[in-house]
Design a binder for these strands. Sequence first.
DNA 1: CCAAAAGTGTTTATGATACACCCATGT
DNA 2: ACATGGGTGTATCATAAACACTTTTGG
Lengths: 229, 229
Amino acid sequence: MSHSYAYARPALAADVVLFGAAEDELEVLLIERGGAPFLGCPALPGGFVRVDEDLEAAVRRELAEEAGVSPGWLQQLQTFGRVDRDPRERVVTVAYWGLVRRVDHRPVAGTDARSARWHRLDSLPALAFDHREIVDVALRRLQVRIRYEPVGFELLPEEFPLSRLQGLYETILRRPLDKRNFRRKVLALDILAEVGRKEEGVAWRPAQLFRFDRERYQQALEKGVLFDL
Amino acid sequence: MSHSYAYARPALAADVVLFGAAEDELEVLLIERGGAPFLGCPALPGGFVRVDEDLEAAVRRELAEEAGVSPGWLQQLQTFGRVDRDPRERVVTVAYWGLVRRVDHRPVAGTDARSARWHRLDSLPALAFDHREIVDVALRRLQVRIRYEPVGFELLPEEFPLSRLQGLYETILRRPLDKRNFRRKVLALDILAEVGRKEEGVAWRPAQLFRFDRERYQQALEKGVLFDL
DNA sequence: CCAAAAGTGTTTATGATACACCCATGT
DNA sequence: ACATGGGTGTATCATAAACACTTTTGG
């Protein structure tokens, strides 16, 4: 196989900002670095991309190896390539961001040696490399995206009351929303299906449960109704 | 310097979709490939990223070398990494998109051996690699971005009549806009400065010339007025 | 005086926002 | 009975969209 130039090549990595939703705050999955540099420092899951592996596949592999999780939603975020972002050598990283239902992935035991843990976004520790910057970009992306694509559901349990959905939006957008207006808008989209059951085990009036209905969402798209919250 | 793994590494390239505005249609800058594969085939300007060079710097260098142009606006688009996108070997490319004032770069003589030429977007030839896909993604990005960021001005001469600006939006968005509504909205943003001179050499009533006023735009941003056309 | 584009307001419809009370349930 | 979140409707305001004629200039 011919090489187009003989000089040293930048190394190519892929990292991922995986978001999960705790009751009242967003969380990010971090691993603890098992090697130099930044030994023991929290960092984003990720690693080098293999020659025969697609970028997204690399991210999914790393997530499985390092934390045993599989995101329900995953998309490219941005590529970070500052020359000095890795003190060892030139490493360009293709960052992804993903969403996962925390409830499906209870303990997140790292199958790898490195320990993976959820960290609240409002009290992140110092991160390795430029990973803090990557998290910030991912958060901004989430804040924009959640308003015009139905991605928030990937953070919630399959069935949820509307107030939980509203709480999620308030957490992500960091501002209070009006209950009546929120309900009206969400229901008008006609992309939720009433489950027909109610919350259980709460000490007050139990709420109706809903689930996101992909089929209806597709129909709404075709009708030109666009998601906008 | 230690390497984190000994296996073959993907190669890293950077390519750019550079848009220019002709009178009535968008154009894209393409070079003709000087080597295998796709010899002689039109392709996006770009090349391999050097180890000691930032991604954006690589793009600017390639644009200067291959086409002698310097974009007024340049931003990362997306990274394309399908395993088989280059038949020779694994090449991951960080794609950028840029805007340039055609009038500032008259002939675009390739200082490099390869010939660079502007091609109308409505009649693109077949492109090398997955470059057509990259162009499509860039166009969609431009169509979205131009509505809420004042980037269109980078495609126009420094001074322009409002009808030219409207024509540009119509070309990019591919739909007609109402003259009165467009003018009202643009002027309400308060980011244009009247030059005080009029068009010359036209065979009809000459229009007032305007220019984009970056300072006013910053002030508008701080006041919370957001660009939206 | 003709051709061609420049320039200018008002009306209507639609969607966004603000706002307060009663209901159902568990303890 | 009481505490707690669940659930509901209306009035107002702001923004977007539709729409046609007069003006200015060069030829």
